[in-house]
Amino acid sequence: MTEARLDDENPEADRYDRATVQAVGKLTEALETLEVARGHLYQFHRMTGTTDFAVGEAVELLRKAGHDELADRIARELVGRNVLPGRWTFQVVEDFDDTYYQPFRAFERQARELTGGRRHLFEAELKRQRRSRGVAGHEATPDERVG
């Protein structure tokens, strides 16, 4: 798939009706927000695993300090404990990916077919409208040289 190329003389967004470009852009915006949420979910997964291993180390330190009863209870009741009924975080991540994330991505890809499969067409149009032509730092593409 090609990246959005800006052509000030023949803007690609003009090939599609504005309402469609806006709608697809909004769905892509929602996907970007979901990507951030998914990143937080993976961060939660990683941090929970790191926490579990740290608790295991704390158990060993409690034992070395002579607190065997507390160490045994923590080891039995907390180390390796489910974060949700019947689930560790890897299962939460997998269920999220299969149940929500993958279908969402598929719908966003399908919606982009309405605008030629292009990603970020709405933003490309915004850039075309908002950039200052001929000013350094406002080039349409990496190949365009200013000044």
Rank of each mutant, 00 (worst) to 15 (best):
V83T: 04
P142Q: 04
R130M: 10
G39Y: 02
D7E: 04
F90G: 11
A65V: 01
A37G: 11
R119G: 08
T51M: 07
Y100D: 03
E57N: 13
F96M: 04
Q129T: 12
E9S: 10
E108D: 09
D68P: 09
E9Q: 12
Y100S: 00
G147R: 13
P142Y: 02
F44E: 06
V21P: 05
E3H: 10
G80R: 15
H120W: 09
F53W: 00
R63K: 04
A124H: 01
D72Q: 11
E69K: 15
R73H: 08
V36Y: 06
R76G: 02
R15C: 14
Q22V: 08
V79L: 08
T99C: 10
R119T: 04
A23E: 08
A4C: 04
T33K: 13
E69T: 13
A37I: 15
R109D: 12
R73K: 12
E108Q: 08
V24W: 00
D72E: 12
K64Q: 10
T20D: 09
E139C: 11
M47V: 03
R73L: 13
R38E: 07
E35V: 05
A30P: 07
P142L: 06
I74T: 10
G56L: 11
L126E: 11
E60K: 01
A19Q: 12
R112I: 02
V146K: 11
M1S: 09
E94S: 02
T33Q: 13
R15G: 04
F104C: 06
D8V: 02
G49A: 07
V21H: 05
D8Q: 14
L78V: 14
E9I: 08
D68M: 00
A106G: 01
E125M: 02
T115K: 06
I74K: 13
T2G: 06
E125N: 14
A136Q: 11
A106R: 10
E139W: 02
H40K: 05
F104R: 15
L62M: 15
A13G: 04
E35M: 09
L6M: 07
V36I: 11
A58I: 12
A106C: 05
R15V: 03
S132Y: 00
N82A: 03
R119E: 03
I74N: 06
D97Q: 12
Y42D: 14
R87T: 01
T115W: 01
T48E: 07
D143F: 00
A136G: 07
A58E: 03
N82K: 01
R128Q: 02
Q43I: 01
E69P: 04
D95F: 15
D52L: 05
R133A: 14
A65E: 07
R15Q: 07
G147P: 03
Q129P: 11
A30Y: 13
R109E: 08
G147S: 00
F104W: 13
E123N: 11
F122T: 07
Q91N: 09
D143H: 12
D7N: 15
L27I: 08
A23S: 15
Q102W: 02
E125K: 14
G116R: 05
D52C: 11
H138N: 15
D68C: 12
R145P: 08
A58K: 10
D143W: 13
D68Q: 14
G66Y: 10
V93A: 09
R109S: 11
G116Q: 13
F104I: 12
F96N: 05
V146P: 02
R81Q: 11
D52H: 09
D7Q: 09
R38Q: 06
E12Y: 00
F122R: 06
D72F: 10
T28I: 02
